Simulated assay, not measured.
Amino acid sequence: MKSRHKRGLGIGLGLLLLCGAAYFVLNAFQSNLVFFFTPTQVVAGEAPKEGHFRVGGLVKAGSIQRDGMAVAFVVTDTQREVSVRYVGLLPDLFKEGKGVVAQGRLDAGRLFVASEVLAKHDENYMPPEAQHALDEAAKARMGAAVQR
């Protein structure tokens, strides 16, 4: 085999290995990708029917119901609400009226079954996605009030 052919074969194998590695990296990235939705978007049907996603907003006052390790609560963006069920330990800072982001999926009855619940970590912090959702809801309320 000529050196020219060996070099071409080496380059071809290198490109094949590079493409294979890129495929595995992108496949792993896509399977771990989780999108954020507000309660308004979930109620409107914009969230995926199957698969995991995040929903965030505020924990509605008076909505927390505990049954052993199971907890049910409502997440709101002040416009719409999503009922959430979670089994496990909640963060210490999880409280009514505070910001929360829950990761999970919708069941057949449109109940959000959370696999993970994240709460804000101090009085000055709100998860960026939840803060954006609340800001958008406030803008929508202001726009509706102006139109009246």
Rank of each mutant, 00 (worst) to 15 (best):
M1T: 07
M1L: 09
K2M: 02
S3H: 00
R4Y: 11
R4A: 14
H5D: 15
K6P: 00
R7A: 02
R7K: 08
G8D: 12
G8A: 12
G8R: 10
I11E: 11
G12V: 12
G14I: 05
L15R: 08
L16R: 00
L16P: 01
L17H: 01
L17T: 05
C19K: 02
C19V: 15
C19P: 01
A21P: 06
A22S: 11
A22P: 07
Y23K: 08
F24P: 00
L26G: 03
L26P: 00
L26I: 04
N27D: 13
F29P: 00
S31W: 05
L33P: 01
L33A: 09
V34F: 04
V34P: 05
V34H: 02
F35T: 12
F35I: 11
F36T: 01
F37K: 04
F37E: 01
P39C: 03
T40S: 13
V42N: 02
V42I: 07
V42H: 00
G45K: 09
G51A: 10
H52R: 13
H52L: 08
R54K: 10
V55Q: 01
G56V: 08
L58V: 03
V59L: 08
A61K: 15
G62S: 12
I64C: 03
D67Q: 11
M69Q: 14
M69F: 10
M69G: 09
A70R: 15
A72T: 15
F73M: 13
F73W: 12
V74M: 12
V75S: 08
T76D: 02
T78Y: 08
T78D: 11
E81Q: 15
S83Q: 14
V84D: 11
G88M: 01
L89S: 15
L89G: 15
L89T: 14
L89E: 15
P91T: 03
D92P: 05
D92S: 09
D92R: 07
L93Y: 10
F94H: 12
K95L: 13
E96A: 07
G97Y: 05
G99T: 10
V100R: 04
V100N: 06
V101R: 02
A102V: 07
A102G: 01
L106E: 11
L106C: 09
D107V: 03
A108M: 00
G109L: 13
R110I: 00
R110V: 01
L111M: 15
L111I: 14
F112E: 05
A114L: 09
K120L: 12
K120Y: 07
D122V: 09
Y125G: 00
P127R: 01
P127T: 06
P128S: 08
P128T: 06
E129R: 01
E129I: 02
A130E: 04
Q131V: 00
A133D: 07
D135S: 00
E136H: 02
A137W: 06
A140G: 03
A140Q: 08
A140C: 06
M142D: 12
G143T: 10
G143K: 13
A144I: 04
R148Y: 08
